[in-house]
Design a binder for these strands. Sequence first.
RNA 1: UGGGGUGUAGCCAAGUGGUAAGGCACGGGACUUUGACUCCCGCAUUCGUAGGUUCAAAUCCUGCCACCCCAG
Length: 356
Amino acid sequence: MNITVGMSGGVDSAVAAYLLKKQGHAVTGVFMLNWEEEDANGVCTAADDYEDVRRVCDVIDIPYYTVNFSTEYRERVFSVFQHEYAAGRTPNPDVLCNSEIKFNAFLDFTLQTQADALATGHYARLTKRDGLTMLLRGTDRNKDQSYFLCTLNQRQLNRAMFPVGDMQKRDVRKIAADIGLPNAAKKDSTGICFIGERKFFDFISRHVPTKSGDMVDVDTQKVLGRHQGLSHYTVGQRKGIGLGGMGSGAAWFVADKDVPHNILYVCQGRDHPALYREGLETEGFSWIMGESPAQSFACTAKFRYRQQDAPCKVVVQARGVRVLFDTKQRAVTPGQYCVLYDGEVCLGGGVILRGC
RNA sequence: UGGGGUGUAGCCAAGUGGUAAGGCACGGGACUUUGACUCCCGCAUUCGUAGGUUCAAAUCCUGCCACCCCAG
């Protein structure tokens, strides 16, 4: 097969490319440049990453080149990111990036280049069942990235390959080291995909209009201070509230946001009841199989990445799903994705409209 | 300008003669392909201020300053 590997400069995609080449496929490494802003130090990290791609591909001995989807990224991912924050929600741009850029704009592009499939270094697995492509959690429980792939559809998954999805991260690094890949010990990348680690407060300030307002105690309704713009806060957040020396002495957390009135509601104590929700509703829901398994059913849910699965009941609604947790969950956050799982199988995901 | 009280880090607050607890906030790091959470580390040579007593004072004494309360 002719396989294009989306290469980031990291070990996972590098080893993915190596494994496919070793299996006899015709592999081409492609580096995507989707964000052209320098970081706080004036450094363009993408240049360093591409340099790693070059060196890796030389070692593996495969052709490589770079493509630029920064326009598509800005229009289809970043604009949504901005609108969501402006609306008081906390978006997950990386989920959107997978469905709109990597496995959409980029996938289409690679197919036009005669590639048969697009491989990435994601920790997730694919398997066929009844003619459908199922998305499974990555074998490495600590690295599982199926959450980020929750909105991919059959068309996209049918052309996708995740060569390291059934491996442990440490084994991936070992292979990288064994074959002499220069990035074998490179630190895992973090931050928004393609944008990278940022001082988030400043980043939001630059890209989203913010307006300061009152911080109100959810219990007493008293104004305790000023917030610096609702977009800077996420439900359940502790950092940045700046309150101290009051009440019980415990830390304060963001309980809720009133966007129309520009009020940040805060509460004291990590386990304050105001932080808990019985369930949630999503706006729309993307089913991996194309449709829901039933009108209502039991399964587990993650409503943020790297969170333990919460057992729940799901009811499919006209738009989206309604999820009722077996036990109350802390900090259900509008804008984040609620991803459903049936054991190893990722059923799909939808954006959280509200906790309830 | 009679009486009483209080002044310890950005905030709250232990400590009443033996060489500055703790919490919150904040900063840094770890974790992490979102944002958060979490964890770890750091954070008052100094206790309103000026003197005095003492081997030794945030702790005792005196003056001054500030704030609060009661009475005027």
